[in-house]
């Protein structure tokens, strides 16, 4: 059975003045996935999300959400937590959540009921009646997250959802995201923190310099880099070892590091034994998503944020 496509974008372009924020970005997300949109600051992630959501129109390209080219037709089925958090300070948490639900078509009363029901799930049982201005930044952020999900959306966009949260709440948010997926929702997660993406995402797209550099599974991204070997000899001179080890081998405090050759570790081990270098330690590491990200992104981007450019 062909998986249902819930998000499809083809050749999105966006220019702000003379700055090309996004160039020819294409994406494809299937139902039930947690899809990571990764990239350094100013890479074009938020601009891409804003185009997907219909907040801004792309200069070129097409997008389709939940089968609709007119994204306004499906706003009631979409949830969105923007990067820049926004709540009315004078509103009570319960009303703020109900308001966000009402914007997505949920009746006010039902929004209030769900707010009372769900705030305790994120540890904010006592916050429902409090005004936003009285809540801490982290608490307000959780209120906004509950608001973004109050109408039980099928497609959820989370733009840098972990920023500003303490480790406990970050863990709580990860669990919440997984619970949403378990309930059948599809999640688009924009982040530049690789740890979260590595733990949560089924597929990722890496954007840098406004262009999509990679799209595939986390495993595919890691596979862009060879396995790394860490070897600590028992004895022998460094100069002699360098002659045996691969050309990219480098020593760090008595430990040699290099990429694993295509023919495996066995020929090398045989050579080391024959040369009487011995083996005090040997490890083969899989590259992390962070390594893959750094490898793929390289020196893309000029360090400016989109907001600065805009």
């Amino acid at each position: 059975m062909t998986p249902e496509i819930v998000l499809e974008a083809q050749g999105l372009h966006k220019v702000f003045g003379s700055y090309q924020a996004v160039r020819d970005v294409s994406l494809r997300v299937t139902k039930g996935q947690i899809f990571g949109l990764l990239g350094p600051n100013g890479a074009g992630k938020t601009t891409t999300l804003r185009m997907l959501l219909g907040i801004i129109e792309p200069d070129k390209g097409e997008r389709r959400l939940l089968g609709q080219a007119d994204t306004r037709r499906v706003t009631a089925r979409i949830g969105y937590l923007p990067e820049e958090r926004g709540l009315y300070p004078g509103m009570r948490a319960r009303d703020a959540i109900a308001f966000m639900g009402a914007l997505r078509g949920l009746p006010w009363a039902e929004g209030r009921r769900r707010a009372d029901e769900r705030l305790p799930l994120v540890g904010l049982a006592d916050a429902a009646g409090q005004k936003i201005r009285r809540l801490s930044k982290g608490m307000a952020q959780l209120v906004q997250l509950v608001g973004a999900l109050v109408h039980d959306p099928e497609l959820i966009f989370l733009d840098e959802p972990f920023s500003g949260l303490d480790p406990v709440n970050q863990q709580r948010l990860e669990e919440l995201i997984l619970a949403q997926r378990a309930a059948g929702a599809t999640i688009i997660l924009s982040t530049h923190v690789m740890g979260h993406a590595e733990r949560l995402c089924d597929e990722i797209a890496i954007i840098a310099g406004g262009e999509r550099q990679f799209m595939g599974s986390v495993a595919d991204a890691r596979a862009k880099l060879p396995l790394r070997v860490r070897y600590r000899p028992r004895n022998g001179a460094a100069a002699d070892l360098a002659a045996i080890l691969p050309a990219d081998a480098a020593e760090h405090g008595g430990e040699w590091r290099f990429a694993l050759a295509d023919n495996g570790v066995e020929p090398l081990l045989a050579a080391l034994v024959a040369g009487h270098f011995g083996v005090e330690g040997l490890a083969i590491d899989r590259p992390s998503l962070h390594d893959a990200f750094v490898h793929i992104v390289g020196s893309m981007g000029d360090g400016r944020t989109v907001e600065e450019v805009e």
Binding site: R50, I55, T75, Y80, P82, E84, G86, L87, L103, R104
Partner: peptide, 17 residues
Amino acid sequence: AEEKGNKVIEILAAAAP
């Protein structure tokens, strides 16, 4: 000014025309 100041405009613009 309030919406621009507290970024609520992003929420509004994503949900409504």
